[in-house]
């Protein structure tokens, strides 16, 4: 029972992070029908930004400001830097390809991903950086069903939920959200309705990338290690989550993320740590074959 609860917590935390990355993929796919392979690198840059802010503020050994302030600063900095990076990528690597074929932005995204990974390697070296959270935030957390739950994980989970709720409100209640949904539904009609499509796309990229940046800091806080290749793997998982949940669907991305996180932690514990990845992929292939549009994806009727 203890193992189950522990794995549940692990799975939810992991799932929350994947969900944030998946949300980014889904938002961008929604407005541009583009699978942004470079999203993982944006997340990685966010993680690095948080690390450098932490070091700049004296951490992890001797923070010069209260710990909570340092963490807030890390999040804000990461979200802003990642957001701006995402906007930059859209402006220079995707916008010129708006009128091109479907595959061109995809290849460009691959190029951006490769470039960013190695640019970070060039600029910051190959050493793995560690957030080393226990050094400035130790102490056991509350007991849940007999299991000690780490407070950092609780923070991360709560923050992820807040961000997701915030995003849902943004999309459903605000004018920007309406514009975003309009562009996702039919870009040409949105233009005719007087919506500034470019502005909407830029804002979407900013929000999606900021979420990824936040996810980067969360991963640093919970799992500690940050290096230039982390974006690739996380991006793959986040992308998987978005697709399984139904790409273009926001609740789908959240569901997909949580699902993948839970599958991973439970297969590691109960089946075999060795085969966790293989089984995850197998499950996903089966889901895709049975429900090609993803779990919550809509059966879109395409007019030919």
């Amino acid at each position: 029972m203890e193992l189950f609860v522990q794995q549940l917590v692990n799975g939810l935390t992991l799932g929350g992070v994947y969900a944030l990355i998946a949300l980014g993929y889904t938002l961008i796919y929604g407005v541009l029908q583009l699978l942004n392979f470079a999203h993982g690198e944006v997340y990685m840059v966010g993680a690095f930004t948080g690390f450098f802010v932490m070091v700049g503020l004296g951490g992890p050994g001797k923070p010069i400001v209260p710990v909570w302030l340092m963490i807030v600063a890390m999040f804000l900095a990461a979200m802003v830097v990642s957001g701006l990076l995402g906007v930059g990528i859209e402006r220079f690597a995707y916008r010129p390809l708006r009128e091109s074929t479907r595959i061109a932005p995809l290849i460009s995204a691959l190029g951006v991903s490769l470039f960013l990974q190695n640019a970070v390697l060039l600029l910051f070296g190959s050493r793995v950086r560690s957030y080393d959270t226990p050094r400035y935030w130790s102490g056991a957390g509350p007991q849940v069903a007999g299991v000690q739950v780490n407070p950092v994980r609780i923070l991360v989970l709560v923050l992820a939920i807040i961000l997701m709720v915030g995003l849902t409100r943004l999309v459903e209640k605000t004018a920007f959200g309406r514009g975003m949904r309009a562009v996702a539904y039919d870009r040409d009609a949105a233009v005719m309705m007087g919506i500034d499509v470019n502005k909407v796309i830029v804002l979407v990229f900013f929000v999606a990338s900021a979420l990824a940046g936040a996810a980067g800091v969360m991963v640093g806080l919970v799992f500690f290690n940050v290096n230039n290749y982390m974006g690739f793997l996380a991006g793959l998982k986040g992308f998987t989550a978005a697709v399984v949940g139904g790409i273009g669907s926001i609740p789908g991305a959240m569901l997909g993320g949580l699902l993948i996180g839970l599958i991973e932690s439970f297969t590691t514990a109960y089946v075999s740590a060795n085969f966790a990845s293989v089984l995850s992929f197998l499950v996903l292939i089966l889901v895709m074959l049975l429900k090609p549009r993803g779990l919550l994806g809509t059966r879109a009727i395409v007019k030919v």
């Binding site: 692990n10 992991l14 793995v128 560690s130 080393d132 991963v219 799992f223 500690f224 793997l233 991973e264």
Partner: peptide
């Protein structure tokens, strides 16, 4: 990046976890 699932498999009477890692930051994690 995530060892929490692995660690959950380590039970209470295990006294040593021997890690054959090449990247020290992973051992720290």
């Amino acid at each position: 990046p995530d060892y929490s699932s692995v660690v959950a498999l380590v039970d209470a009477d295990t006294s040593v976890v021997f890690a054959t890692f090449q990247i020290a930051a992973n051992t720290k994690a």
